[in-house]
Design a protein around this nucleic acid. Structure first.
Lengths: 343, 343
DNA sequence: AATATAACTTTACACGCGATAAGTTTTTGT
DNA sequence: ACAAAAACTTATCGCGTGTAAAGTTATATT
């Protein structure tokens, strides 16, 4: 580092022997200047540590390089994982990801969208809370700023949606459970926060009927996002009061299943599909911890690599090419059956 | 909303019948203007939706209202939880939290600090990777920008550090384990990424000797942050090859313990302190999932409420009052024993 | 009611950059 | 070697705000 202090682009232009507009061009796209000038600038960059003021840049550019990324709950490792992969993709594309968590609350979700408005992002990737969202406010936001939804769909909101094909995945695991033993009951929350839960309930019913089985729902009380706690508490009750019609349970998601597994353990009910097991438990999502439960959890793995990749691709295309005009795109990815110890 | 479009503070000042500098004052501190003018402005705010351009603001303010919050790994629910509580505190204080995850990598950590530099934050709360951090670069950063460390300490870096008293907490659980049965071996990674791991190792050794017991270390291979996987894989091996001197194991952290619990289950070793149990397992941290493992995990709960609160308080004081001059403050909070089923 | 003071107004400049126009130099292709 | 094209230069404006100075009006104090 040399002596003088570089406080703005003008200063930097002087010491690098190039005019300021050229330096500006360079920072916006290093390939847009002649190789010789590029070398000059980059040599100077080695000696002085200057970086353009991001606030001044964003004030003057028509569009910022920011992309908002909003997930329902970062405390849920499933969303933490998908957020992480999407962050990486956004960075790789030369954009700046801004990660926000709605912490399970619709007010926080709206507050997050408000924060994003202030930042004037080029686009937003949003996994909405779903049923709990303040739909009209979210829709309003998506009108202002290019938005792609993922994980949970809000009909007609945003330019595209990428998620899982619950009908396919639930059918897959219902079939598996029916073929390997008694037909499963469906363990879910009475008032789920997520629209996927509704689709899974419906898919379960359809699949069971198609297989000539009687659907059986176990709908438990519980508010909020503490699914393991709900699964444990209500699971304990269900086991204690013997409310299960068969020895198989399909949980609406893995976190409920984790709680239920814990409840079964505490109640001395052996879980698994082997001899001497009193209960089979399956989940949905392939939660990061699903392979470490006791026994490990049989579940459906969502293709969140694909969901993340396509969501990012789409928002980038939207930003760079403007609206495609092709209308709202809805893409569902198939789930994969992951057979483990619990069922 | 009325007809005209408000595009800047000037426009807004006109329709509210107040001068622009006064409006500016209002947005910086609503209490700094007369009640009557405040009412005028707030009435206008109801009719038009205007908000000051955040980029223009930050370009001109000496200090921004941004506070960086960097954690080693958001995929770890422990950090997700602590980040969430700190975010709330920062918001409540009228600042804007910026959450970044280092994803377990030192390069990403430095890259995060670089991103923060660009944002010119008023202060930064950093949970460093620790041993894996590029110490000198982190130290350099902390010289430029007011920084408070938490969770993992880097000697002399930042204005303060808040964390757990590993000596106290490990002593607590070692004593508990020794009083309730055979003395524990210490299960840890050979090359841990975190300085807390070293302190815990040392604390274990000290406590055991003080109690007249022979320390016994089980140091397993494994890189990265996939602790459950490492605990499972190496735990399986340890059990298979009968490497445990007693029936008790203290894991360096809960995530290793979760993996080990899973390994014990798969190996048909019953875990717990009751009759017929072949193994007792304890962890450290009170991971959000520790109460749902099978059996539930006996562990040490870190007071991360206090750690978060004090860290935020301190950075705010630093920002608002400048350096205290009291020198670097190091505060350790005591852990609490959480007795559950596994030991 | 007179005075001190707090709060306001107008005016002006600063911040650091993007963008553009008009003129100049360098590179490219033949 | 020459003209055309590309890349540069200088000059200037605009973005939306913070901030300071100087003068004016409203509020609080006695």
């Amino acid at each position: 580092m040399s002596g003088e202090k570089i406080k703005n682009m003008e200063d930097f232009a002087v010491v690098s022997g190039v005019s300021r507009p050229t330096v500006s061009k360079y920072f916006n796209d290093p390939d847009s200047v002649r190789q010789s000038t590029r070398s000059k600038i980059e040599a100077t960059l080695e000696r002085y540590d200057y970086r353009p003021n991001i606030y001044a840049i964003n004030q003057n550019r028509r569009r910022t390089k920011n992309i908002g990324l909003v997930v329902p709950n970062l405390t849920d490792p499933f969303f933490a994982a998908i957020a992480r992969t999407m962050e990486g993709l956004i960075l790789a594309a030369g954009y700046n990801p801004l990660l926000l968590s709605s912490h399970g609350g619709p007010d926080q979700e709206i507050s997050n969208l408000d924060s994003l408005r202030a930042i004037k992002p080029a686009g937003v990737l949003l996994a909405p809370l779903g049923r709990a969202s303040h739909d009209s406010l979210v829709a309003e936001f998506a009108e202002e700023i290019p938005t792609v939804l993922f994980d949970a769909n809000l009909e007609g909101v945003g330019e595209a949606f990428f998620g899982s094909d619950n009908a396919q995945s639930i059918d897959l695991i219902v079939q598996y459970l029916c073929r390997t033993g008694e037909p499963p009951a469906f363990f879910e929350m009475k008032t789920p926060v997520n629209p996927n839960a509704f689709r899974r309930r419906l898919a379960y019913e359809t699949s069971m009927k198609r297989l000539g089985q009687e659907p059986h729902f176990i709908r438990v009380d519980g508010e909020g996002w503490d699914f393991e706690e709900i699964g444990f508490r209500e699971g304990s009750r269900v086991i204690r009061e013997n409310l299960l019609p068969t020895n198989a349970v399909l949980c609406s998601n893995d976190r409920l299943a984790i709680g239920l597994l814990s409840a079964a353990f505490e109640s001395d009910v052996k879980v698994g599909l082997g001899n001497g097991c009193g209960l089979r438990i399956a989940g949905h999502d392939d939660h990061p911890f699903a392979r470490y439960t006791c026994p490990s959890l049989t579940t459906i793995s969502q293709d969140y690599g694909a969901i993340g990749a396509r969501s990012v691709e789409t928002i980038l295309a939207l930003i760079e090419d403007g609206k495609s005009g092709k209308g709202r795109e809805v893409t569902l990815f198939e789930g994969r059956l992951v057979m483990r110890g619990s069922a």
